[in-house]
Nucleic acid binder design. Structure first.
Lengths: 219, 219
DNA sequence: GGAACCAAAATTGGCGCCAATTTAGGGCAA
DNA sequence: TTGCCCTAAATTGGCGCCAATTTTGGTTCC
């Protein structure tokens, strides 16, 4: 009983997936469907439906719902069930504010750390985003945007930061559709990506901050 | 054979305590014990031990462990169990960096928003901290410090931010003991609290930023 | 004497059943 | 017809049992 033994056998990461009707984690699948708008904000997530939809067991569903509730993506009402959280305007703007502070806060570091290969990588991701504006789905666009911003933040040399921002981003984007209303705005986002890259190449931290500000506040 | 059902009678065994009918959430209890250092970093958390220690069922333990694993406070190794995560130096400094960026980022807003009652409230919390330096336990001190910083951040008018920082703070402080090594450093922290308050009263955003920087980086 | 091997105990993790609670529907009375 | 209540169906949530895997301890062989 009690504790001890700091036996440190390092956990093998184990990226096991595939095989069997259960591809990976049900949490991820439900999350994707929420993001895609298939599971609309406000709708009730009946365990029996999810069970059938994803071909998994009841307890897997319950664990997934509990995790999503911890992340604030769904809300739990005891003896009633779980429903998709509908983020209000206040929360959305507060989270935008946090993103702004963080990304502005590391802009200087990004400019300092970025080398030629990093810039090339960013440019590749920005181009991928532009391509998907024409040819991709909204979901692919969302992923590409996330990839660009993750790569950008990674240049600050703070891994925790990348994960943190990825997490809080998800809190507002129950349905990414609601974010990017018009195609004009999406194309504008694409141009802003290239503005950021240009600022990084010029080692112009202030210009990068401006570009990020416009990009996040979308105005 | 199987002993005890959900029988609330305290298990004899080792002289454990924590005998509550079911206080609320087991997650919180385990968290407290991790923070208190009772469950040391690196130690394995056997489900059967926790079950007995907190007088709860197996599945409550499992849910709590899963939640703590989501929050990165414990690590899960399939078929081996959960052990308390031992944060490395890199992660600790990265999280300090994030806190720094966020708190500096809202320093201006805090100075603008803080009214006389807010300052009085902060001063009360700072005094409470000072009092506990002499009379309280390390755990109480930790709580008081958290209360001060939460109140400070709340002045920025961003509720999400308060919760976010509270969350990431926990990630490094598996054992708060490791943070505040010397009493001299703790007393220094107390003085810095008052420096921050003074800066807020003078509406001096830059002074507040300096004070926060020294406080977080502890140098 | 040491290492590899095998059997027994301990631990984790999953599955299914069933009780508690909530929701839906139909009948009865005003 | 409208409103209320009571019963039946649906849903959530908890608990115990058992299979799979790992760890421990003892034994044998080199």
């Amino acid at each position: 009983m009690t504790v001890m033994t700091a036996d440190r056998t390092q956990a093998a990461g184990a990226g096991d997936e595939a095989v069997t009707p259960t591809p990976g984690d049900v949490t991820e699948l439900i999350l994707q469907d929420i993001m895609a708008g298939i599971l609309a904000p406000g709708s009730w997530l009946k365990q029996i439906d999810l069970e059938r939809r994803y071909g998994c067991t009841r307890q897997e569903v319950r664990r997934a719902l509990d995790r999503l509730a911890q992340k604030r993506l769904v809300q739990h009402v005891p003896n009633r069930g779980y429903h998709v959280h509908a983020p209000d305007g206040r929360q959305a703007s507060e989270i935008a504010e946090i993103r702004l502070i963080l990304e502005i806060g590391v802009a200087g570091r990004i400019v300092l750390n970025a080398g030629a290969p990093d810039v090339a990588q960013l440019r590749h991701l920005a181009n991928e985003f532009d391509r998907l504006v024409l040819e991709g789905t909204l979901m692919e666009l969302y992923e590409a945007n996330l990839a660009f911003h993750s790569a950008l933040l990674a240049l600050a040399g703070n891994r925790e930061l990348v994960e943190l921002v990825t997490d809080i981003r998800r809190r507002t984007s129950s349905a990414p559709v609601s974010q990017w209303r018009t195609r004009a705005r999406i194309e504008q986002s694409g141009r802003e990506h290239h503005q950021m890259i240009a600022a990084i190449e010029r080692r112009d931290g202030d210009a990068l901050k401006d570009a990020i500000t416009h990009h996040i506040l979308q105005r």
